[in-house]
């Protein structure tokens, strides 16, 4: 039984403006959840709160293993990850970018080499592995971001508009990667998109965010 995620009455406001109010949800483990809603309705904020990058003003994010809640510590943070909309590519080689998460976990060099090579192969960037990551196109950078996350084999992965402002070819590659993540790695996926067709293709569950609240789609 993997990691499961529940939100309990999450509320968040910025500068006095309420973005999220009493959002509660139980995400089903191993399924992909697509979160939709107009711009500025708090989708990214909700994702950042779920990924423990921000704290809610009220309410709780509960991660459970075997039905027991886990402390929100570094051990837990290392079992989940978030693909940021801007990726945040490090100014180093493609290989070092993907190896980053493994290096900080103290994984040995040989294992890192094997895992990074396999992941770069999966996202179609293996030929670029010695190149400077900042020279990649926007679509390739998104794939790099996914590779950086995938190599860590997260149990829950949050994707904030993974195909925004990239071409059709890259979008298709990324959608394939996301489908594989779910099918092969059994990861729970929670993603934000503005594309209803994509939501249809990738989502097992659709969630809508409206007036600061979560609704089933």
């Amino acid at each position: 039984m993997g990691l499961s995620l529940e939100l309990a009455q999450i509320s968040k406001a910025y500068n006095g403006q309420v973005i999220l109010r009493d959002c509660s949800w139980v995400f089903e483990t191993g399924l992909s959840h697509v979160l939709m809603g107009p711009n500025g309705t708090g989708k990214s904020t909700l994702l950042r709160i779920c990924a423990l990058l921000e704290a809610p003003d009220r309410g709780r994010v509960n991660y459970l293993a075997d039905g027991r809640p886990l402390p929100l510590d570094l051990d837990l943070k290392r079992r989940i990850t978030l693909l940021l909309p801007g990726v945040g590519v490090f100014n180093t080689s493609v290989f070092n970018n993907v190896a980053y998460g493994l290096k900080i976990r103290g994984i040995n060099r040989k294992e890192i080499q094997a895992k990074v090579d396999a992941t770069l192969e999966a996202v179609g960037l293996v030929e670029k592995k010695r190149q400077r990551a900042l020279d990649l196109s926007t679509g390739q950078s998104k794939r790099l971001g996914l590779a950086r996350a995938m190599v860590l084999e997260p149990e829950v992965i949050f994707l904030d508009e993974p195909t925004a402002s990239i071409d059709q070819a890259n979008t298709e590659i990324i959608e394939d990667i996301i489908m594989n993540l779910k099918a092969e790695k059994k990861a729970t996926i929670i993603m934000v998109t503005h594309d209803p067709a994509q939501a249809e293709r990738l989502g097992d569950r659709l969630l809508l965010i409206k007036d600061g609240k979560l609704w089933p789609g």
């Binding site: 990924a51 990058l53 570094l74 943070k77 290392r78 990850t81 978030l82 693909l83 940021l84 801007g86 990726v87 945040g88 590519v89 490090f90 100014n91 980053y100 998460g101 900080i104 976990r105 950086r148 996350a149 860590l152």
Partner: peptide, 24 residues
């Protein structure tokens, strides 16, 4: 600031996070 966030979401502890930003 996204560099620091990227380090965080990839599992960096506070020291690793700081070193990543310094390296950038």
């Amino acid at each position: 600031p996204i560099i620091r966030q990227a380090a965080q979401v990839l599992g960096a502890n506070p020291l690793q996070e700081a070193l990543t930003v310094i390296r950038e």
